[in-house]
C-alpha cells in the first residue's frame, strides 16, 4: 500500500498536527518505508486467531460508590495555559 500526500494531510489533521511542507515530505517517505516493513505481517496466518488487547485478563474493577477525596480546583487549574475563574479558558468555538 503506497501512502499518498493527501493521506498524509488527512492523517495530520486527524492527529491535530500542523506540518510544514518539508515535514510532510519527510513523513511521506518514512511512513511509506515503515508500512512497507509492516507488510511482512501478511505472511502470518491469523485465521481464527483472537486479537489480543492486553496481557492481563480484562475486567472492570468495581468499588463501593463512596465519595473519595479528589483534586482541589486550584490544583487542577495550576498548570492551565489560560484560565478564567475556576475554568480553563479556550478560544471561542462558536462564532
Amino acid at each position: 500500500m503506497k501512502i499518498t500526500p493527501e493521506q498524509v494531510d488527512y492523517v495530520a489533521l486527524l492527529g491535530r498536527l500542523r506540518l510544514e511542507p518539508e515535514e510532510k515530505e519527510k513523513y511521506l517517505g518514512q511512513l511509506d518505508d515503515i508500512l512497507k516493513y509492516m507488510e511482512m505481517l501478511s505472511e502470518v496466518d491469523t485465521e481464527g486467531v483472537e486479537p489480543m488487547a492486553g496481557p492481563v485478563e480484562l475486567y472492570t474493577p468495581l468499588r463501593e460508590d463512596v465519595v473519595q477525596p479528589s483534586l482541589p480546583p486550584e490544583d487542577a487549574l495550576a498548570n492551565a495555559p489560560a484560565r478564567s475563574g475556576t475554568s480553563f479558558k479556550v478560544p471561542k468555538i462558536i462564532e
Partner: peptide, 29 residues
C-alpha cells in the same frame, strides 16, 4: 509526530483491519 502519524493512520477508517487488528492477532500468536 512520526508515531502519532503512524498510529492515527493504522487506526483510521479502512486501515484498522489490515494494521491494528492484524497486529493484535499476531500478538496473540
Amino acid at each position: 509526530k512520526r508515531r502519532i502519524m503512524l498510529g492515527t493512520y493504522a487506526l483510521s477508517s479502512g486501515y484498522y483491519d489490515a494494521y491494528y487488528l492484524k497486529a493484535a492477532k499476531v500478538r496473540t500468536l
